[in-house]
Write a protein that binds this DNA or RNA. Structure first.
Lengths: 142, 142
DNA sequence: TAGTAAATTTATAATAAGTACAATGTTATT
DNA sequence: AATAACATTGTACTTATTATAAATTTACTA
């Protein structure tokens, strides 16, 4: 039985990406933490395991993953970019109170936009903002 | 017959915003230029008419408009924030080749997301990316 | 298997959008 | 007119991201 490490290595090789230790670890982190981390989150999570890790590597690797469709960039945040592994048909909700980002199912893939006829659509994102149920309840008790 | 300037002044007053010259001009620009400008675009467009204008004022004013739901922030761009007047039920398509941002009609207001039951949704954005028809044609002729 | 070329990582410096803040100017109120 | 509240401005600062070049690792070839 293959380990996750081996699976992720294969995934990189399949995409013609040389499976360096840093790349595997970053990919492993994305697969294990669907919390829409920032580049900084990823760096901080891995620095103890890879003491020589550089932020440049994190940025380079994320860009590489995005180019190869292994990761996705979320622009829901104004200040920092966030990253996620690629999953289809889901949107993101950001709670402006606690900052957490939630996934939700939405089928946008099959929606035909006639105004975009003749356009090549490569990426579809649905971003909602508001206040999550937990924060709404917390406010009620004030 | 009232002028646009007067109309926009009234709009600000209705929202309890003191109608300063800078605010009216920035609102006027947003109404007249649906090109999803950056703060810098707005600053550069108005600096000749308002030589004392400061970028701080542009940022402050845009924040104020957003708080009062007169403008909307687009996070489609990774590098710079873009702004638009508030219009319902439309998404944004960004051409990664020429950079232009297109509006398109999409009815997301009436979509019910059961996973977000109990959440207060304040803002819904649909962002697509890809290559516009014009750029696709241009590439064909290479 | 040593030597070389290519790819990758790293550290540092540079860039630039956005924010904080204090000073100045303007408007409203008494 | 005096004063308080509000708005604008300019400067300095913060910080995410990018650019670059050196160092390191890996792959390739003789």
């Amino acid at each position: 039985m293959k380990s996750l490490f081996q699976d992720l290595t294969s995934l990189l090789v399949q995409n013609n990406i040389r499976p360096s230790y840093q790349r595997i670890k970053i990919l492993e982190y994305l697969h294990g933490h669907h919390i829409h981390p920032t580049a900084d989150d990823i760096f901080n999570a891995l620095i103890s395991e890879i003491p020589t890790l550089s932020k440049s590597t994190v940025y380079n690797t994320l860009d590489l993953f995005i180019s190869n469709n292994l990761a996705r960039l979320l622009s829901i945040e104004d200040t920092e970019a966030r990253y996620d592994i690629v999953m289809n048909n889901h949107g993101h909700f950001k709670c402006v109170s606690c900052g957490e980002i939630f996934n939700f199912d939405i089928d946008i893939e099959n929606t035909v936009i006639k105004e975009l006829d003749g356009f090549s659509i490569k990426d579809k994102n649905v971003y909602f903002k508001g206040i999550c149920a937990k924060c709404l309840q917390a406010n009620t008790h004030e």
